[in-house]
Design a protein around this nucleic acid. Structure first.
Lengths: 346, 346
DNA sequence: TTGTATGCGTTATCAG
DNA sequence: CTGATAACGCATACAA
């Protein structure tokens, strides 16, 4: 190593280093970076050259400390492996990134306790806003969120009493309408298989059950649930279980998501059950696979990317001082009936 | 604004606030948080109470600035929507989280230019280490990474000249072996469909092609590629295209990933082509779907979660001062032949 | 347009 | 075991 003018031990260059090299004061360098319009073109140019030659990268911690602006948005999702959150995240990242914000992402593993800890960690980074999933945070967690005094969006479902802003759709209503569709198709022995059983899945199931009850078609022995995480393999297992306990008297099954539904479909095929002739299947989330598999799978489509986009936009609006028209947005859903369920009887 | 004793306007509590309430000095509070063993139980207790009643959350920016330890690991992946990276990320998050590190994640959209910008942003957060994808960073980006003087892991593929540490597998070799397997099954008219065509896909294709050439079975007209991102829909389209241009003389297709392969499989079914009788298919990445779809799909299995885990562990080791035995780890792959390709001829 | 002084909340260093 | 003081690197408020 060659001895250099100052940074003896090749430490990261600072504003001061750049300033010295450019022959200006530190604040001028800062301005070139943050308010270029407030600096003469001449200096601006000289400073940029110095920045380049030094490979200067601003220290965001110092900036954050001095300005109380971290440029970070904290995001908490319950699972990194659940593909559902990918699309939402993509929306958030696209909008946040375009707005100059970084995203600090944590995975709460569907546990409110973990969520509380992760959100505490997140808050220690002084995020300028937070996006969290659902509404079952611990009391302590909600207090933290509130006293952080930053915009918060709770996403994925419509909440009775949002902490601040809220975007999502009614899982209860979605479940309810799926049941209506299946009944309209003439199915009588209608079952349900669910996994993970987080709040949103529970609501889907509750809505589904309620609709069945209106027609006296709810049979508790046709409902199977497990706290295990969803997978295609599990979908097959649950279907087999349901078929055996129901004594074969089963003509339609609503699966709480497309993982289970695809598993059930593939398992049906292996058991030489014809879908939808022997058994109708309906999933939830509408994966791309569902539209292309044979027979194609009926499912509930949700504009997830759009939800992420809007969640981030609501945040950016508040951060920019533009008030949102609505603090709560119902993004809706759409039931897509395909080949795995027969046409509604006229 | 009123002159304040301390926080007139419910600002976040600071170390000083906690210290005052507990009747100790700020540094003692700091120690309770970071080196509890160096503080008497009595004080420790009093301080913790004060922390609780104030709902104190440390300011990581200040900590980072003062200690030069950000507790952040930066991660750059090329796509948030590609499921492949989910598993890797899960591994990284699990290990990093357990080690007390946060993960700052960026999506480079498969663009070295974007990657350079995003990594610059990442570096401004003073991460203590970086995990990036592959080796085709821009020169400038590699310089930044090097001069950051932090541990760096390049993952997903084995590199000739890693910047620092490296974990992955040889995509060339994987493609090569897939071709060998197909040829061993007796296929003669072997095609390839590829999308996105990033470095790793190109290597798979190159290996595949080279193996075919050894047996004089490479036919350029049976290779189709597109820069478009992969999807199931695209797999179907590419297969249709290939079938029409090849005049039906095609008996096996290697798809650069399982998205395309599933699309090709579903499309074959709609065209009433029997797989593998009329056409054999092999994918890459081994999604869960591939093992369960009918017919099940041959694919190349890669220990992605494990790769994420090990990448993070290599980082943590360096950070803890424990040297890694290897700076480069070949995590391997495994070709899983299933029903979509016929058995190798004896 | 540019610069000076000051403080952001924490930790390292050194005293006691 | 505990505390005083001085950084850490940058941006705000004010001057020039």
């Amino acid at each position: 190593m060659v001895g250099r003018t100052r940074n003896t031990k090749s430490k990261r260059a600072t504003l001061a280093d750049v300033a010295k090299l450019a022959g200006v004061s530190a604040i001028t360098v800062s301005r070139v970076l943050n308010h270029p319009d407030k600096v003469s073109d001449d200096l601006c140019h000289r400073v940029r050259e110095a920045i380049d030659t030094l490979g200067y990268i601003p220290n965001q911690s110092a900036s954050s400390l001095a300005s109380a602006r971290s440029q970070v948005i904290g995001v908490a999702i319950p699972s990194l492996s659940n593909v559902v959150f990918n699309d939402v995240l993509r929306g958030i990242y696209d909008v946040a990134g375009a707005g100059g914000y970084k995203v600090l992402l944590v995975d709460t593993h569907y546990s409110p306790i973990e969520e509380e800890n992760m959100i505490r960690t997140l808050l220690s980074q002084s995020p300028e806003a937070m996006i969290v999933t659902g509404g079952d945070q611990t009391r302590a967690c909600q207090r933290m969120l509130s006293s952080a005094a930053i915009p918060v969006v709770q996403m994925m479902e419509i909440l009775e009493e949002p902490l601040d802003m809220n975007i999502g759709f009614s899982h209860f209503q979605a479940g309810f309408e799926v049941a209506q569709k299946l009944m309209a198709c003439g199915y009588q022995r209608i079952g349900f298989i669910g996994a993970r059983m987080d709040t949103r899945v529970q609501q889907r199931m509750a809505g589904f059950k309620e609709a069945l009850q209106t027609q006296d078609l709810y049979h508790s022995e046709l409902f199977t649930t497990t706290p295990s995480p969803s997978s295609i393999a599990l979908g097959g297992e649950l279907l087999r279980g349901l078929l055996s306990t129901s004594g074969g008297k089963l003509d339609a099954v609503f699966c709480c998501n497309d993982d289970l539904a695809l598993g059930a479909l593939f398992e049906s095929q292996r058991m030489h059950l014809s879908v939808p002739k022997d058994l109708a299947l309906c999933g939830f989330n509408d994966f791309e696979t569902s539209a292309f598999v044979n027979p194609s799978l009926s499912s509930v489509h949700v504009p997830r990317y759009e939800m992420g986009v809007q969640a981030a936009q609501m945040i950016l609006n508040v951060l920019k001082g533009v008030p949102n028209k609505e603090k709560q947005v119902d993004i809706g859903f759409e039931i897509r009936m395909r080949q795995s369920t027969r046409m509604a009887s006229a």
